[in-house]
Amino acid sequence: MHHVVLDRWGCGLSPVHRRDPRAKMLAALIFLVALATSHQSYLAVSAVYFALLVTAIFAAGLPPAAVLRRAALVLPFSLVFAAMSVASGDTTRAISLVVKSYLSALVVLVLVSTTPLPQLLGGLERTAVPRFLLLVVQFLYRYLFVISEEAQHMRAAAAAKGGSMGRVISRRRHFGAAAGAVGVLFARSYARAEAIHLAMLARGFAGHFRPLAKSSFRKLDAAFLAGAVAAIVLLRAAIEAWT
């Protein structure tokens, strides 16, 4: 399952892992904007940025091949549109779609595999993002695997039932069975949410979550951010001045 891998990568202790999430997020955001807004010489910029990301992957001690492969999840979508661009005669656009979408996915992947999602959310807490939304994301992530496992059990159970009946069930009934399974999953998820709420109340929850961690943006984080931004901006500027 995807996010188990991310959890494992996120547990690292490299200097990149230890930076404040806000420093890493801001660096990644500036990377994305710099990439998205580069036009004429974007290929050279992309090549240099790719090198930057590979450096970051090594510095963070992540498995390079696995990370590069995972970022390729975006490629099927990009390739379809690239093919359509080629078909309508815009080859430049086709290459740009593939290169930019891949690099963007890669930088986000490097960010989340060096910063566990709860930390990222904690970093976002002091920004404009509504805290309520962040808490919902946090709970979604927490129970994603629990509910997915339940769905897998139900799928297996449905398959076993179909097998034991010893005949191929009609498509209509199969459709109905799937709807029933989703319905049951819905009801169980709902019941789980209520149980969680009850457990929260039992521990004195009075309507608002109080954060435990106090983040500290240290000099090293500022230095990291400054270095990353300088590299991103200056490299692009140098390339554009040169070409």
Partner: peptide
Amino acid sequence: EMQLFMPTVLEDVAFGPLN
């Protein structure tokens, strides 16, 4: 599973005291 809803063990155990 329903009682451990916070992202880390420490945050979860500290949930009650914070409340």
